[in-house]
Design a protein around this nucleic acid. Structure first.
Length: 523
RNA sequence: GACUCCGUAGCUCAGCUGGUAGAGCUACUGACUCUUAAUCAGUAGGUCCAGGGUUCGAGUCCCUGCGGGGUCACCA
């Protein structure tokens, strides 16, 4: 062996000596690593491995008649289990497409006198979790399982950390790792050991692709707008604040991209969209992560009635593309995304579930009505927020099937165009599914003078102590003064739609890396 | 942020009214050339989340902290 190898081996002894906090099994794997190196086997080889197949393809396509097509397969994956029969054994490897059984016979991988590749390398030095490449031919075992008869075996990456072992038989799972902290912090391990987790994230990508396709076939233009904003606009929310050193100014992480997309409508695009990662400095729970994804799009010369129909079409397609049906199981219920969806005004919804007619109430009356309904309020809340509070507390949870809540009071919608016929209302809808808001849309306010007044109202709320009231964005007003066509816009909560279509109870289950308190890792 | 439950071996979990820590899987040693939760025999593996307190004695009781789940509040 070369000096290089010896130096490496010394290095590994140092590693072993210095890591006394390691478990017995971790130490053992480091010793195996050092042994492999001393045998001249590179545990982390550089050259590409010439994979020509995968587990799913083999299991789907192989048959006895076609076996000549499978006489020379090369695939790679992680060792998930080994059943040792002495001079032969069965192992299962997992690649990106699934799992497949290997049949490894000593005299096949060691045709000569030297049996060390099998007896020492394979049986002693390789472990569950290691990534290997194999070459061989496909066959079906006596018990009917499509397998690869291995002729050649290559170590591609040694695993130093024991993987939790989850076993399965007849659809039953044993010792599944269900600890949420483990799953969310070590998603990489969760993905390896729980195949159903991978399914969820494949569906998430399908959902986003489906929506993108829906929009692109309608000639919508995907754009990027700033995440770092000097004025966090477009929503009522508490922002994260950060600082730009060179400019020495504060910046906010965006809470919404709405005002930027509308600037682009002013600029002459007819239909723009963006999957916007938004950041809100608020509480976290099973439906809220500090950063989350909203798809917003804005379409010139349309109104919120058109938008309701478009929403129905988009969700119908998304459900079909992701679930293969417009009927989607959620918990013990079935939710139908088949158009059309029920429409009800927010005032009617409140009347239906509380008996109160709040449509003609002033702020004082609303306040006492809230008291009677046991809805918690505080002094900073204006009329709009009071109505929103009643709806949120008493109505929202009752709407399980997709329902458009329409025609909101003007006070709670500072960016929305006034209703064409109803005084005091705006042309807005929220789509509620399974008791949660998943979309919010309106006929956009394009009257720059009205918009300036609405911003000024928000400024007054801010003075009252409402820390979610909107800042006045003078550049946005300047844009509107050039003239924005009548426009309808919408924002979809992508994470929540994903929760529905994958039947997951928590937003953390549809985010690959949900936000967690920083972990203190001892080294 | 409030309330509440939880934290024991690499993993899943036992551990009663306080008495020196237990199983299965994994790992290790050995047997077995078509097994599949492979099987069989043997062995090892622990800062009981951390720090205090009560006690002759704490995994167990009390307090504080850390981390996580759930419910509520805020919100999408």
């Amino acid at each position: 062996m070369s000096a290089f190898i010896n130096v490496s081996a010394d290095k590994f002894f140092i590693v072993i000596m210095q890591t006394q906090h390691l478990s017995e099994q971790e130490l053992l794997r480091r010793e195996k690593l050092a042994e492999l190196i001393m045998m001249g086997i590179e545990p982390y080889p550089a050259p590409l491995y010439p994979v020509n197949s995968n587990s799913a393809y083999i299991k789907e396509k192989f048959s006895e008649e076609k076996k000549t097509d499978f006489a020379d397969v090369c695939l790679a994956g992680r060792i998930m289990s080994v059943r040792d029969m002495g001079k032969a054994n069965f192992a299962v490897i997992q690649d990106a497409h699934g799992r497949i059984q290997l049949y490894i016979r000593r005299d096949d991988i060691c045709p000569g006198e030297d049996k060390s590749l099998y007896d020492i390398v394979w049986k002693k030095l390789l472990d569950i979790g290691d990534i290997i490449g194999i070459k061989g031919y496909v066959f079906i075992t006596k018990t009917g399982e499509t397998s690869v008869h291995v002729k050649e075996l290559t170590l591609l990456a040694k695993s130093l950390r024991p993987l939790p072992i989850v076993k399965e038989a007849e659809g039953q799972t044993f010792d599944a790792v269900t600890d949420p902290e483990f799953k969310y912090r070590q998603r990489y391990a969760d993905l390896i050991i729980n195949p159903s987790v991978k399914e969820v994230f494949l569906k998430r990508t399908k959902l986003i692709n489906s929506i993108r396709e829906f929009l692109n076939t309608r000639e919508a233009l995907e754009v990027d707008t700033p995440v770092l904003q000097a004025i966090p606009g477009g929503a009522a929310a508490k922002p994260f604040i950060t600082h730009h050193n060179a400019l020495d100014v504060p910046f906010y992480l965006r809470i919404a991209n709405e005002l930027y997309l509308k600037r682009l409508i002013v600029g002459g695009f007819d239909w723009v969209y963006e999957f916007s990662r938004n950041f809100r400095n608020e509480g976290m729970d099973r439906t809220h992560n500090p950063e989350f994804t909203i798809l917003e799009f804005y379409v010139a010369y349309k109104d919120y009635l058109w938008m309701m129909e478009t929403t129905e079409q988009l969700l119908e397609k998304a459900a079909m593309d992701v679930c293969g049906s417009t009927d989607v199981p959620v918990n013990d219920k079935t939710i139908s995304f088949k158009a059309p969806y029920k429409r009800i005004s927010i005032y009617d919804a409140i009347k239906e579930y509380t008996g109160f007619d709040v449509s003609k109430m002033n702020e004082e009356h609303l306040r006492s009505a809230c008291k009677q309904m046991h809805v918690e309020v505080d002094k900073t809340m204006g009329k709009g927020k009071l109505i929103d509070a009643i709806f949120g507390a008493k109505c929202e949870q009752h709407f399980i099937q997709p329902t458009f809540i329409i025609d909101y009071p003007v006070e709670m919608s500072p960016l929305t165009k006034k209703h064409r016929s109803e005084r005091g209302l705006v042309e807005r809808f929220e789509l509620i599914v399974n008791g949660k808001e998943i979309a919010n849309a309106y006929s956009e306010l394009n009257d720059p003078i009205d918009q300036r007044e609405r911003f000024e109202e928000q400024a007054k709320l801010m003075e009252r102590g409402d820390d979610e009231a909107m800042y006045i964005d003078y550049d946005f007003l300047r844009a509107l003064e050039y003239g924005m066509p009548p426009t309808s816009g919408i924002g979809f909560g992508i994470d929540r739609i994903c929760m529905l279509l994958t039947n997951q109870p928590s937003i953390q289950d549809v985010l690959l890396f949900p936000q967690m308190r920083p972990e203190k890792i001892q080294e």
